[in-house]
Amino acid sequence: MSSQASSSKAGLSYTDRIPFHSNAAAKQLLALMDKKQTNLCVSVDVTKSDELLEVVRRVGKSCCMVKTHIDVVEDYSHSLVEELVKLSEELEFMIFEDRKFADIGNTVSLQYSSGVHKIASWSHITNAHPIPGDGIITGLSSVGKPLDRGLLLLAEMSSKGNLATGEYTRQAVEMARRHRDEGFVFGFIAMKRVHEEHSAGAAEDEDFMILTPGVGLDVKGDKMGQQYRTPKEVILDSGCDVIIVGRGIYGKTDEQEVKVEAERYRSEGWKAYLERTRK
């Protein structure tokens, strides 16, 4: 982690960062992370409803968030999200639908609120590419903000050869800053604290949460270009806030092994956070 990041909000506890956020979902997430002592988000990218819910039951106690790709579920029904919401309340985790919206404001407002999935009605957090410009935030906010939802912008990605770098990332940060006071955008999907790397124009009380995919303890990559870093590299070295882990947890075939792996990642992520906040 850079010297700039080490003296930033990243050195505070999650609870101590709550006053720097006006978004209700961000406040809830920060409080939940401290309460459960976890910065783990489990990405459950499976195609059957029963399998999705079974994985969630196994990992829910170890994570602060479950990330879904609801459009890959082949037997989707509204009862699936009803059960998912019920589990989120029982096991105390938030739901992040990884929709990656990428269209004009009017279109994304309909995609978010309507159609088969009605994402805004059940998902606490979603995300969007900044490619369409500020209108994508305006459109999503018109639906999500009245429901106390939160939005993340994709500033960086973990796949090899992706184009979300350099000027693209800087523009994503600037877009989030323009809308920060509106209380809907609260962070980024990124590999590091991008807002501190692009600090020109930052307010003194600025704080964005960084959620980071591409986290693995046993492998460094896959055949499709995904690249992995350890929880320590992500949380301690890069100053990120939430580790997103998928196949490294749900890819295990034994029920107990899935629970063990979820707890293993929770423990490693939390240990790195404690080391970071002690500095």
Rank of each mutant, 00 (worst) to 15 (best):
E92D: 15
K192P: 03
Q111F: 10
G135M: 11
A202T: 08
G161K: 02
Q227S: 01
E261A: 09
S13D: 10
F186K: 09
T38W: 07
A155P: 01
E182V: 06
I244F: 02
V66C: 12
M175K: 14
S22P: 03
G133K: 15
K100R: 15
K145L: 15
Q28D: 15
V143Y: 13
S159Y: 05
V260N: 07
E196M: 14
K67A: 04
E156F: 01
G60C: 13
H179K: 12
L147H: 13
A155M: 02
M33F: 08
M175W: 13
K100M: 14
D241T: 08
A164I: 09
R99P: 12
I18M: 14
D50T: 05
L87Y: 05
K192A: 00
S158L: 06
D34I: 10
K67M: 03
A176M: 05
D222Q: 00
V46H: 03
S142M: 15
I249E: 04
P231S: 13
P213H: 01
Q256K: 14
A200G: 07
G201I: 10
E206P: 00
R276T: 06
I125N: 04
E156K: 01
S8F: 07
L29P: 06
R266D: 08
E90L: 09
S158I: 06
H129S: 15
A202S: 08
K67Q: 04
E263H: 10
M209K: 08
D75I: 03
V66K: 12
R266P: 07
R278I: 05
T138E: 15
N39F: 07
T138N: 13
L140A: 14
G105Q: 06
I119G: 08
M94T: 10
M1F: 09
V185E: 08
M33V: 08
